[in-house]
Design a protein around this nucleic acid. Structure first.
Length: 1062
RNA sequence: GGGCCCGUAGCAUAGCUGGUGGUGCACCCGGCUGAUAACCGGGAGGUCGUGCGUUCGAAUCGCAUCGGGCCCA
């Protein structure tokens, strides 16, 4: 054992520990230690390899690390392979940016091979940067060999699943409306769409009804550019629609508008007057045909048979009639299929109109809005601007469009019931994450569009014959190489695109150009992480995962994609238990974002307070599943707790070292808590108490962790350090630390303190791995495991738990508080002894606790005697209070005299007389009055020097602060001692050093009080080899002293001189 | 527009199987001090987001509404 630094420096401690872990390869050794034990299969949700980690990413990995460190301590051989998500559009966009590209054409001109190579380099570089950042957070995952979605092995696992989907008939190719980014020129998933407010035109348009001149259907839209693709109008069959004659500037026209909306629509169109001619249910309108108002501008529109159809999604808003363009809307598309409407989509992948769009050809769709409005001419009934939420590409932030395209889908609805059944079998923390949130999400799930028209991703392993259109899905690279006769060096584009396969029909099969949605990559993590399908043993032994944990955003992300892929492949969920955690927000509960400037980086916190404080803060601040509102003040508070842990740890070290203390060990030389387990029955009561507390704490921590109540576990630990160890046990045990002789009480104190620290670091190790390692390494015996992280987990020593003692000690602490309050009221400092302290209570448990722990109470209260009185303490007197309401009627104008007499009377005598005879007399001579209970009430009266304070638990504490010579002498002696100790400290003396002392007191009486026994007491307490204590004015004190100070002690000047003994 | 979660003193948080609202930090006053840029006691500070309802009684249950977050449309 070495002494510890006098103040905790996170930087020093953590750097040293990290150095030790590196030098000794501790992480590997911990893993080796558990090899061969029961496996615990954890799967890391792969962060995307772009940019740096933020507080949320840090929180995520810290939760994982805390859980896994504990599982290792519990004896499991933990599968802890880190993972990275490395394909996809975000990286493509970053690389495009670096190269100054603006379109897919730029990429193709540059060369797909070169482009993909740059994407790969980007992903690999950022993977390494992030691994280093995670390591800096003390995260022990396997970053040496992480699974990477770009690896051949991983790609193969995705292929294998797609082949299963094909076998089950779940893989579909179809013409669908998808979210389309016109800049990236690809379909993007619903989950890749970000919404924010955008200003758009809000227009009301007249569609001329066929064969009825001057009669129109009125529709509303915010996307004028979709009008060239209009093929129908939807109505609700049950709504009432009005046929209205409307007048504007003298001209009349007939308009169809939903009845309730006529007024508002016509006002927007600035019509001066109108008459409702007739009303009809929507069902009557179905089948009406109309012409496109853009027929002149878009020739293709002339060929389209426009008609009114019924739909369930129409709402009583705007005009109650919905413009239908199946090529540009999801609902429109489904309705179009159902109604046999044409799917017309005159927009290309670049977001520009094609030749089918007539005069609009070549225009980017959103830019074409103005042109369309112009072409509408008199058909435009009204135009406003609306600000509404509109979707944008998550990477390039361009507004998305909806576009009907050829895509690949997984038919999720076909396996939805199975997925819901699996959700119910998984253990969710919290429960509602699965039963409510995830369940509802999956219940609404639609087909999953898995294809993207991009370059950097897992290629979709589908080959289609250019002659007969037959298709083949390859599940492994070997299978593809077999069929093609070619060797695939790299499964990425463009290499894989070069592979052709002969078709049975004699034609040639070529790969479809698409790549997978990145979510389809990470969906395979649970089997790819153990090398499936190439290697099967691990998979069969381990899968599905025992535990995963990710943020609530992954409900629609990784929790979902994994469940989907796993249901396709194995008909079951890929995880047994899931902890869903919250989001890291700023102090105001707002999302951290660069544009708000409210981002707090993990590095910032680490630089100020260290990794352990960051970890303990993140884990204790709130429940894992609640959003975390980052708060610097709370971080400071946690920092304080960690500092106190350090202080508590270092407090006994100098004494232990001085005494050459070594904890009692087993025959193998390891510490096994042998001393306390064997001797606890005979140990001092405060030792037994703290041993019980630590054991109870361990049991509580265990229970909390079983439910992933990480915040409760960590808060329990922090509270124990602060309340039980620092504020109580250390205070109680302190005197025993400097007992000179080899006393059994001292051994007991050392063994207890040692036990407390050993158990504490064991329980804290998963959460604050550095400081616990530093403490453990200093405390461990040579035969003990080298690292705290090699220890076995503990749920506490049940045999040390003594509930009754814990309750009794709670009572003593309440007593301690009450004494302090009473002393404060009596203005008697704790340093000054008092003669008597009395606890008045009718509560036998309180009485028993005080009496059972009387010596402790006396020491804490600095009281010569502590007594319990069951009913009434005889020293509490009664003060008589006159009752004027009774005195007035009885004594008339003598009332004030009686009042004064009662106030002066001895309340105790008065009360006794009244209780005995029912009446009493006050006054003397001629003025004697007889009073009864009607004239007086009694209040408690404390003797002059007694002060009271209520104590929780039906008790009151009374402290008699009166001084006699002896008490006063001790008080002054303690005042002198405290100041001499302060001087020792200023001289920076070691605990074992002796001093010589000279004290001159500017008060002869006090100097006399201190002479004799008290002088010896002072010598002993301050470790003085000689002392000269006298009244000042006599011979001058020694002139030479290491330190001389003049003190004001309770108004008396004392000059003290201290020298270290040579 | 829908689903889920959160909303308690200046800040953070406990209580949420209904019975007079706790704790920590910060603040003010006092004390202690051989852990000492620690520690202890006391005090002040709350419309438990808002409204309505159920109940003898609601922070706690129900409905509505507002604000924040994640997700979906």
């Amino acid at each position: 054992m070495k002494e510890a630094a006098s103040s905790y420096s996170a930087q020093d401690v953590e750097a040293e520990v990290r150095q030790y872990w590196d030098d000794e390869d501790v992480y590997r050794r911990v893993k080796t230690l558990r090899e061969g034990a029961t496996r615990f299969f954890f799967v890391d949700g792969p962060p995307y390899t772009t940019g740096h980690i933020h507080l949320g990413t840090a929180w995520n990995k810290i939760i994982k690390d805390a859980v896994l460190r504990r599982e290792r301590m519990r004896g499991f051989d933990v599968v802890d392979r880190a993972g990275y998500d490395m394909h996809g559009l975000p990286i493509e966009v970053r690389v495009e940016h670096e190269l100054g590209f603006t379109s897919k054409k730029d990429i193709e001109d540059y060369g797909i091979a070169e482009f993909v190579e740059r994407c790969k380099t980007f992903a690999l570089d950022h993977k390494d940067i992030m691994s280093e950042q995670f390591r800096q957070l003390g995260v022990w995952l396997d970053f040496e060999d992480p699974y990477q979605t770009v690896s051949e092995e991983f790609i193969e696992s995705a292929w294998w699943v797609l082949q299963r989907a094909e076998e089950k008939g779940l893989l579909e190719r179809g013409h669908r409306v998808v979210n389309w980014c016109p800049r990236c020129e690809t379909a993007i998933a619903d989950s890749e769409v970000e919404y924010w407010d955008e200003a758009d035109p809000s227009i009301f348009v007249k569609f001329p009804i066929s064969g009825r001149d001057g009669e129109f259907l009125v529709i509303w839209t915010t996307t004028p550019w979709t009008l060239p693709a209009n093929v129908g109008v939807a109505v609700d069959e049950t709504f009432t629609y009005a046929r209205v004659k409307a007048v504007r500037d003298g001209a009349e026209e007939i308009l169809w508008i939903a009845g309730d909306l006529v007024e508002s629509v016509l006002r927007k169109g600035r019509y001066q007057d109108y008459t409702v001619l007739e009303t009809h249910p929507g069902s009557d309108l179905v089948g009406i045909t109309y012409e496109s108002p853009l027929a002149a501008a878009v020739p293709a529109q002339k060929e389209i048979a426009h008609r009114v159809v019924a739909a369930g999604f129409v709402e009583m808003e705007n005009t109650g009639m919905v413009h239908i363009a199946p090529g540009h809307g999801w609902d429109d598309f489904l309705l179009g299929i159902a109604e046999g409407l044409e799917v017309f989509c005159p927009v290309g992948g670049d977001g520009r109109f094609t030749a089918d769009a007539g005069i609009f050809e070549g225009l980017a769709v959103r830019d074409a809005n103005e042109e369309v409005l112009g072409a509408l001419d008199e058909y435009l009934l009204a135009k406003e601007t609306i600000v509404h939420r509109y979707g944008h590409c998550w990477r390039c932030k361009m507004p998305i469009i909806y576009r009907a395209t050829e895509q690949w889908f997984i038919a999720i609805p076909a396996i939805k019931e199975e997925m819901l059944g699996e959700i119910a079998r998984v253990a969710w923390y919290p429960e509602w994450a699965g039963s409510a949130r995830f369940h509802d999400f999956v219940a609404d799930a639609r087909d999953w569009c898995i294809s993207r028209q991009r370059y950097w991703g897992t290629p979709i392993p589908v080959w289609v014959c250019d002659a007969c259109d037959a298709r083949r899905v390859f599940g492994t690279i070997a299978e593809l190489e077999d069929a093609s006769g070619a060797v695939l060096e790299d499964p990425h584009r463009p290499y894989v695109d070069e592979i052709t396969v002969p078709c049975a029909c004699g034609g040639t099969m070529r790969r479809v150009e698409d790549i997978f949605d990145v979510w389809f990559d990470s969906a395979n993590a649970s089997w790819a992480t153990v090398g499936f399908p190439r290697r099967r043993e691990e998979f069969e032994a381990l899968w599905p995962a025992d535990f995963i944990t990710e943020g609530q955003d992954q409900t629609r992300g990784w929790f979902y994609s994994q469940l989907g892929a796993s249901t396709i492949a194995f008909d079951r969920a890929p995880y047994r238990s899931v902890l869903m955690h919250g989001f890291a927000l700023d102090a105001e509960g707002r999302k951290m974002s660069k544009s708000f400037g409210n981002v707090v980086s993990p590095e910032e916190v680490v630089a100020k307070f260290g990794v352990d404080v960051l970890r303990l803060y993140l884990l204790s601040a709130n429940a894992p599943w609640d959003d975390l509102k980052f708060n610097w003040e709370s971080v400071t508070t946690v920092n304080r707790a960690v500092n106190i842990l350090w202080n508590v740890y270092r407090f006994p070290l100098p004494y232990m070292i001085l005494d050459g203390f070594a904890p009692e060990c087993g025959e193998n030389g390891r510490w096994e808590a042998g001393y306390v387990l064997a001797n606890h029955a005979s140990m001092p009561v405060e030792d037994r108490w703290i041993l019980s507390r630590i054991s109870s704490l361990a049991a509580a921590v265990e229970k909390d962790l079983q439910e992933y109540q990480l915040h409760r576990a960590t808060r329990g630990l922090i509270t124990c350090i602060l309340e039980d160890i620092s504020r109580w046990y250390v205070q109680l045990v302190r005197p025993r630390m400097w007992l000179e002789e080899d006393a059994p009480e001292k051994t007991s104190a050392y063994e207890t303190m040692y036990y407390v620290m050993r158990r504490l670091v064991q329980l804290l190790a998963p959460f604050t791995p550095h400081i616990t390692e530093a403490i453990y390494r200093n405390l461990r015996t040579d035969a003990d495991p080298a690292s705290v992280h090699m220890l076995d987990w503990t749920a506490g020593d049940g045999c040390l738990i003594d509930d009754a003692l814990e309750r009794a000690m709670d009572t003593v602490r309440a007593f301690d508080d009450a004494v302090a309050t009473a002393r404060q009221a009596g203005r008697r400092k704790l340093r000054w002894p008092v003669a008597q302290t009395v606890v008045v209570t009718g509560d036998e448990e309180v009485a028993g606790a005080i009496e059972g722990l009387r010596a402790l109470c006396e020491a804490r209260a600095n009281s010569r005697r502590v007594e319990v009185v069951r009913d009434r303490w005889e020293r509490i007197g009664w003060r008589a209070e006159p009752v004027m309401r009774g005195i007035g009627p009885s004594f008339g104008k003598e009332g004030p005299t009686v009042k004064a007499l009662i106030e002066q009377a001895d309340g105790n005598l008065l009360k006794a007389a009244l209780e005995e005879k029912g009446e009493a007399t006050v006054g003397e001579g001629d003025a004697v009055y007889t009073i009864t209970a009607a004239h007086v009430t009694f209040e408690e009266q404390l003797p002059a020097d007694v002060f009271a304070a209520p104590m929780s638990g039906n008790a009151t504490v009374y402290v008699d602060v009166a001084l006699d010579d002896d008490l006063e002498a001790e008080g002054y002696a303690r005042e002198v001692i405290r100041r001499l100790q302060e001087m020792r400290r200023q001289l920076d003396l070691r605990v074992e050093d002796f001093i010589t002392v000279d004290v001159s007191v500017d008060d002869a009486r006090v100097a006399a009080l201190l002479a004799g026994d008290w002088q010896d007491f002072i010598m002993q307490e301050v470790r003085a080899s000689s002392i000269s204590l006298r009244a000042s004015g006599g011979a001058a004190g020694a002139t030479a002293a290491d330190l001389r100070k003049e003190w004001d002690v309770e108004g008396i000047t004392m000059v003290m001189a201290v020298s270290a003994r040579q």
